[in-house]
Design a binder for these strands. Sequence first.
RNA 1: GGACAUUUAGCUCAGUUGGUUAGAGCGUUCGAUUCACAUUCGAAAGGUCACAGGUUCAACUCCUGUAAUGUCCACCA
Length: 886
Amino acid sequence: MPKIELPKAYDAKGVEDAIYQKWEESGFFNPDNLVDAKEPFVISMPPPNVTGILHLGHAFENSLMDAEIRYQRMKGKKAMIVPGTDHAAVATQARVEDNLRKEGIANPRQDLGREELLKRIREYADNSKSVILSQIKKMGTSCDWSRLAYTFDDKRSEAVNELFKMMYEDELIYRGYRVINWSVKGQSTCSDDELVYIDQPVKIYTFKYSKDFPIPIATTRPETKLGDTAVAVNPSDNRYKQYIGQKFVVDVGAKAPLTITIIADDGVDINYGTGAVGVTPAHSPVDFEMYQKNKEIGIIPVIGKDGKMTENAGANYQGLDVLVAREKFVAWLRENNLLIKEEDSTHNVGTSDRFGDVVEALPMDQWFIDVNKKIKNKGRSLKELMKEAVTMGHNGDANKVITITPERFHTIYLHWIDNLRDWCISRQIWWGHRIPIWYCDDCKEVFYSDTNSGHCNKCQSKNIRQDEDTLDTWFSSGAWTFSTLGWPEETPDLLTYHPTNWMQMGYEILFFWMARMILMTTYALDDIPFKDVYIHGMLRDKNGKKFSKSLGNGLDPLEIIEKYGTDALRLSLLRGTTPGNDMRFYEEKVEGARNFVNKLWNISRFIIQSSDNPRIVSVAPEAKTLADKWILNKFNSVINLSTQEMDKYNFSGAIEYLYDFTWSDFADWYLEIAKVEGNKEEILFYILQNILKLWHPFIPFVTESIWQTLGAGKLLMVEKWPVGVQSQDQSSVNDLEVVKEIIGSIRNLRSENKIEPAKKVSVVAIAGNKMKLLTEQAEIIKKLARLEKFTVLADSEKPANSVGTVAGGVQLYLELAGLIDVEAEKKRIEKEIVEAEKYIKGLEAKLGNKEFLDNAPEEIIIKEKEKLEIYIERVKKLKDQRSSLI
RNA sequence: GGACAUUUAGCUCAGUUGGUUAGAGCGUUCGAUUCACAUUCGAAAGGUCACAGGUUCAACUCCUGUAAUGUCCACCA
C-alpha cells in the first residue's frame, strides 16, 4: 500500500462540512437506525428562541449535549438529541416590533393589524429558524433531524391545547381579577419571573391625607394614593390600634372623596417608617392581598393600561403620565401643608425583560394556573408535584427522582417553589398560542374549543368570539420533552423515549423552564420529564463581564469556527469548566484548543506516514519492551479514568486525563521512545485508534477525519467506546517513571550547565540496584537525553571533571571537560540536600509520633516509611557527590 | 433584608470520600529550526491554597466566624 501523504496542519475548514454530511447521511443521528442498541438515551434540546442567531452560549450548550450524546451512542445506547426551536412569544414579537419601529412604523399593531403583523413575525421567525438550524449543524451537533420540532408547529399546538383543556377541566386554569405586572410599552402582562429589577433613585414622601387624619404614611408613589382605600397598621401598635375599624373620609383631589378604613395587618412593621401603610389595592400586589382579606375596603384603579391616570384620579389628573401626576400631587400636598418629609433613597423597580420599560401594577382579568389547588384524582397540588419529583420521587417512586447537578441548585429550586404564586399565563400579544377559550355573546357561555366550531356549545348561537389573548411561551416549552415525542397521542416514540435522560440548562432559566417542565409532565403524563439535570454557568468575557449586545463584547461562534475550526471551539468551551459555575471565554483559549487538535493530527500523521500499512488494530498487541508495558498500562488507566468522569458528567475532568495522556505520555514520551526502539506499529495503531474514540465526543471532526484516513469503512461516530482492562504489571510503570526521571535530570543538568542541545556529552550512572533496568533502557536514555555515551556502573568513584545529581535513586555524573564551576555546583547540591533534609525531618517527626502510628491506616504508614527511606538514601548520595567535589 | 456561590502561581482554572514536597493551560525567563508538529521541542522561575479560630495523628479538603467579589430571591409603605 502506498504511503499516505497528509498535510502538515489539520485543515478544519476543508473537512468539517463533508464530515457532517456523511454523518447525517448515515442515518445514525436517528436512534431507530442504531439496530444493535437497546437502551435509549435521550436529550431534549432546549429550543433556541427564534429571536435571532445563535451566540456562544448556544455553542456551549451544543458542545455539552453533543459530547454527552456521542459518548452514549458509543456506549451502545439508542442515543438521540431531539432538536427544535422556540417561537418565544413575547420575545419575538417585541424584537420584530422594535425592528418595524426602526423602519418607521410607529405603532406596528395598529398600523399593520393582527394578520399583517403576524405575517411579518412569521417571516422573521422562519428566517432565523433556518439560520439557527444551520448553525447547530455547523457545531457538529448530532441531532435527529427527522424529529425536528417547533413549539408553534401544529403538533406542538395540539399538545398545548390538550394541556390547556385538561387543566381547565380540572379547574387548575382559571380567569381571575388580580394585580398583575403590566408593560405599557408592550401592552401586555409579564409573569413575576419575567421582571428584571434595577435600582433606581427615588424620593420617599411622608404625608397625611388631611389635616385631621391621625396617621401619617409614607410612599414612593404619591400618585397612586389617589386610589387608596385603607391604612394598615399592626394590631399591637399602641399608637394606632384604637383607630382600627374606623373610617375616614378624605378629599385628596380624586374624582370622589376617598373613604379610608383603618385595618389591622400583622405584616406591618411597627418600627419601619411611620408604622403604617397606605393601602392601594389596585396598584400594589401586596396591597391587593390585603384587599382580598378585607374586600369591604374597596378597590379604585387610578392608572390605565396606557400608563396614564384614569378618570377615577379626578379631573386634575386624568390623562396625565404617572410622573407628571406625581409632581402635581406632591405640589398639592405641599400647598396644603400635608407633606411632612421628603427623603432620597433607592428602590428596586421591576422592568419587563423583553420590552424594557418599568412595569406598572394594574388590576385586570387574566388567566392563571392555580399552583396550590389539590388536583382531582391526585390529591396533591401542582406545587407538591413539583417538589415531589426532586425529593422522594414522583408518586414516591425512587426510580422517578430528578437529580440536579450541582446539588446546591436542589435547595434553590425547592425554595423557589415555596414562594411560587399562581402563574399568570395570558399575554396580550398576538404571536403565540391563542387561548382556546370561546365566549358566547348571547348566553354568556364560556367554553373550551381547540377550533372554531362556529357556534356556541350551549345555545348554538353563532355570536361567539375567541379569547383575544395568547399563552405565555413557557406554557408550550413546559411540554417540550413530551410534545416533541408525539403527545397527546401515545406514540411509540413517547413510550420508548420518555422520560428523557439528561437535560442541560443554564441556571438563569432553572425556574422558568425546569420548574415548568416538571409541572407539566408530572401533571399530564404522571411521570418526570428527565432523570438528570445538569446546570451550567454563564459564559463571560475575559474581564468577567456578561456577553451582551450593548457592551459590544460578543463573539460570533461562526467567526471562531471559521478561524479555528469547530473542534477547537468545542474543546475550548468544555475544557476547565465545572457545572454551575460561570466561565470566562476568550480567544487564547480557542487557540490553545486549536493547538491541541493540531497536535493530535500530527501524532496521527506521524504514525500513519511512517507505516506502509495504515490500519486499525483492535486487539491489544503484546508488549515487547518496558516502554510498551508502561504505555499500555497508562492507556488502560486513562480509559478507566475518563470513562468514570464521563459517567459523572464531568467533561472537564475527562478532557484533562485525555489531554495529559495524549500530549505528554503518548506524544512526548512514547513516540520518542518508539523512534529509538522501532518496530511498534501495532501498538501505535492500537492506541491511536482508541484515543480517537475517547476524544470523539469532544472533537468529533478531527477524530472522524483521521479515522477515515486509517482506512476504516465505518464511521467512528458509531464505534464502541473502549473498555479498559485492569492493568497487571504496575512495576513496569514505576520502572519507566525512573527512566523518565533520569532523563529529566540529565536534561536539567545540561540546561543548568549551559550545554548546547546539539552537543553530545557523556554520563556515568552509578546504578546500585537499578543496574538491570538502566542497562536495558540505556539506549532510550542515551537518545532522549542526547548523550554520546551512557555508562552504567554498579559502584564506582565519581568520574573526574563532572557534575552530579541523584534521580530515581541513581547517582548521575555528567562529564564536563574542565568546565566546572565548583562553587556553583557545591551550592546547587547543598540546596538539594537542605531541601531533602527538611523533608526527612518532617517525615521523621510524623513517624515518631505515637498518635500517628496508632491512628493512621497501615498503608499510609508504610507509604511514609518508604518515602523516608528513599530520601535518606538520596541525601547520602548527594553528600557523596558534595564531598567528591572538593 | 435572606440565601447561595467564589476566593489556589502574573492570568484563567483543576484538585474525587481528609493522607500529593499542591497541578494544568496561557504568560514569563533561558535554550533549540533534531527529518510528525514552531499550531513545535527541552529546561526553569513562580503558591503561608483570602484571613482568624476550631475538630483531627493529619486540613486546600470538615466546622465556626470575618473580609472581598459575584449571583439569585424577597421587598416595606
